[in-house]
Simulated assay, not measured.
Amino acid sequence: MEKAVADSIEAVVFDLGGVLIDWNPLYLYRRLLPDEEAARRFLAEVCTPAWNGQFDAGKPFAEGVAELSAEFPHHGELISAFHTRWPEMLGGAIEGTVAILEELRRAEVALHAISNWSSETFPIAAERYAFLSYFEVLIVSGERKLAKPDPAIFELFLQETGLSATACVFIDDNAENIATASRLGFKAIRFRDPETLRRDLGALGLLSAQSAV
């Protein structure tokens, strides 16, 4: 049964942030604000996920920072840091997931990625994380002016790879992105942690359910 499922899968498609790469604005703002509560409040009320999402969809940082600084002039320096000190938001690779990626690569499974990421900051990650070179097709939202969960970015991926959605496993930590992918026919897996992902991929016959040695 597992082999039959595996034989129907032609590719595994990864999200990056939160799945393979630990990215979190709190890493920076804990340094810039007095305490954890202040950092979380600032990111909930000023440099919000929705504001950051504009950069993922292609908006230039300079434009977004200028607009928000005009709205919150007393926070101008903190807002600017979201761009100028962006690398400090990057943590390490999520090693358990990278190990899974490596194992799939050794098994010659086709690997692709669809990531919500600014075109201005993605080169920083590409230089830091060598495994990003493993992907045959890597769709960066900021470069395409499309972002998940918009179905159009998934459709663009299918067009560029020539794959059908039903032949792809899609892995993402965001529930909305998973819902869209599932509606389009992808075998969608909500990422929670590397151990659970290994079991999920094992159930599809793509790799061992046991940790790689």
Rank of each mutant, 00 (worst) to 15 (best):
E108W: 12
D15V: 06
D172E: 01
Y129C: 04
R31W: 08
N177D: 07
A81F: 07
D7A: 14
E120N: 03
G58P: 01
T161V: 08
V109H: 00
F14E: 05
Q54D: 13
L206Q: 04
S8G: 12
S115F: 00
G92V: 03
A152I: 08
F191I: 02
I9C: 06
A38M: 13
L33M: 08
L90E: 11
K187Y: 11
D172P: 01
T166D: 14
P34A: 13
A209D: 11
L207S: 00
V46G: 09
T161L: 14
V109C: 12
D150H: 10
R85I: 04
A203Y: 12
T84C: 15
F14Q: 00
E71K: 15
E155G: 01
A175S: 12
A57Y: 09
T84H: 15
G142S: 07
A203S: 09
A62S: 12
L33N: 06
E176R: 15
G18P: 07
Q210T: 00
E108I: 06
D56Q: 07
L146D: 01
I124D: 04
R183K: 15
T196N: 11
R128M: 00
W117I: 05
L197D: 05
L204G: 01
A57D: 11
T196Q: 14
F61A: 13
E120R: 10
P149Y: 03
V137K: 15
M89Y: 02
E102H: 14
L201N: 01
E88G: 08
W86L: 00
F72E: 06
L206E: 00
G162Q: 05
L138G: 02
K3M: 15
V19F: 12
P60G: 08
V109P: 03
S115P: 11
L138D: 09
I100Y: 07
V13A: 02
G91A: 02
A11P: 09
E67A: 13
G53D: 01
A110I: 05
D35K: 03
H74Q: 14
A212L: 15
A38W: 15
E67V: 11
G17Q: 10
E63T: 13
D200I: 04
K59E: 14
K3F: 14
I124S: 05
R192A: 14
L33I: 06
A81H: 01
R31F: 13
E10P: 08
V169C: 06
Y129T: 00
L111D: 01
A110P: 05
A209H: 11
G92L: 03
E77A: 12
L207F: 05
R128Q: 12
L43H: 09
A113G: 11
F122W: 15
N177V: 06
S115K: 02
V140P: 03
F122I: 03
P149E: 03
A147Y: 02
A188N: 06
E143S: 09
F122P: 13
R106L: 15
A165C: 05
A6G: 08
A209V: 09
K145C: 15
L111E: 04
R41K: 15
V169D: 08
F14C: 00
H74R: 14
V13H: 08
A99I: 03
D7G: 07
I124A: 05
D7C: 11
T121V: 02
P49Y: 09
A147T: 08
R199F: 05
E103S: 12
D35M: 08
Y129P: 06
